[in-house]
Computed example of a mutant assay.
Amino acid sequence: MCNSSTGRIERRSPSVSVPSVQLYSIRDAMAADLDAAVARVAELGLTRVEPYAFAQRTADLKRALSANGLTAPSGHASVIDAADPDAVFDAAEELGIGLVIDPFVPTERWRTADDAALLADAVNGLSARAAERGLRFGYHNHQWEFANQVGGRPVYELFVERLDPGVALQVDAFWAAVGGADAPAVLRGLGDRVAAIHVKDGRLTGDIATVLPSSESALIVPEALKAAYENQTPAGQGDLDVGAVLAAAPHALRVIEFDSYAGDVFEGIAQSLAWLAEHDTEGAA
C-alpha cells in the first residue's frame, strides 16, 4: 500500500505462509525488461518478492511492484561494505522493505575467530542503526561460512554467538548443507532469530563441502562446486530435505530462490511455489 502523504510503500508483516521470491533468480529477464519480468512473477500467483541491489534502482522497482500489486517484505543489499548505509535504508523505506539483508561477504573474511568478531560487530552496529528507523537488518549465508572451520567449529557459529539479539538471520539452508552442515539442526539452534529462509534445492553429491568459491564472487567457483549452482532444482526435487528445513523454522519467511537453473526459471519458480502450497504445513497461518 502506498502512503499518499509520503509516496512511500507502507511496510506490512503478513503471515509467513505467504511465500516470496528472490528477484536475483530472474536477473537475466530483469536486465532485458525489468517491468515485464516482475509482471511475469505476479502472473505466477506470487504477491511478495525479495529485491536485490534495490538501492541502485529504487524508482524502477517501486513502479514495477506497484503496477503488479506486489510487496517486498525483505530485500538484499550490500550494507556491511556500503559507503553510506543510510542510503540503503532510505531505499528500503521507499519500497516498504522491513527486513534488509546483506547477502555476501567473501570467503577470505570468514577465516578466523577475529574475522567472525569483526563482522559480528559491524552487523550489530548496522542492526542498531536500522532499528532506529523501524527496520531490521541481518545477514544471509552461503557455503563458506560453514565450510570454514575454527577449532573444529563452523566460523558461522562464532559469528552468531557474538550477534545482538535483534539481528536477523536469513538462512540459505541449501548452501549451509553444501558447506557440510545439518541444515534443519542449524535452524532449530538459531530459533526465532531466523527471520527468513531461502527455499532452494539441488544436488549435494560430490566433493562440494570442501571447496570454496572465488573471493570476488560467489558465482566464480571451482569445477567441483559448479554442480551446486548448475544443478539446482525446484523445491522437493533435489537432495535437500526441504520439508525438514521448513519444519525447523515454521516462523520464517519463505523465499524461493535459484542461483542458477538449467530450464525456464519462471517454470522452476512455479514448481517450487506449487510444492510449498502442498507441503508447507508448518508455515501455515
Rank of each mutant, 00 (worst) to 15 (best):
G125I: 06
G151W: 01
T47E: 14
A67R: 10
S215Q: 05
A53S: 15
D114K: 11
P51G: 05
H142P: 13
S215P: 09
L190G: 03
F146A: 06
A67Q: 11
T58Q: 01
P51H: 08
H279K: 08
Q22P: 00
I80W: 04
Q237H: 06
Q271S: 14
K62I: 01
L23A: 09
D114L: 04
P165N: 04
R8P: 00
D192G: 13
G206W: 03
D164T: 11
A183K: 05
L273E: 07
V160L: 02
A55L: 01
V49A: 04
E50V: 02
S25E: 10
A185R: 13
R111D: 12
L23N: 08
P213W: 04
L119W: 00
L190N: 03
L65Q: 09
P154V: 05
E161R: 10
S214D: 13
A53W: 13
D192F: 00
D182Y: 03
A274Y: 02
A131S: 15
E230S: 12
Q237V: 00
T205P: 00
T205E: 13
F146G: 07
G180Y: 12
A83L: 09
A83P: 03
V123Y: 08
R48E: 14
W110T: 02
G151V: 09
W175G: 09
R162S: 03
P222R: 08
D90T: 14
V265F: 13
A117C: 00
H142E: 11
G45H: 06
L46Q: 10
A55K: 08
A42L: 05
D280A: 11
A92V: 12
Y139S: 10
D172W: 06
D264Y: 12
A168K: 03
K226W: 10
D239L: 02
A181V: 07
Y261Q: 07
S215K: 11
N3V: 08
D81V: 04
E145Q: 14
A131Q: 14
V16W: 03
D239E: 08
D182W: 07
W110A: 03
N148A: 07
Q143K: 11
F54T: 02
V18K: 12
A147N: 05
D115G: 11
Q22S: 14
D201P: 04
A244M: 09
R27A: 13
E43I: 00
V211Y: 10
R48T: 05
Y52K: 00
A209S: 15
E278G: 00
V171G: 05
D172E: 11
V150I: 13
Y229V: 01
G151N: 06
E132L: 09
A67D: 15
D33W: 07
G125F: 01
E50Q: 15
Y261T: 06
E108T: 12
L240R: 04
G69M: 07
G7L: 08
L240Q: 04
P154G: 04
A284Q: 14
N3H: 14
D28S: 13
P103L: 09
A244W: 13
A122H: 10
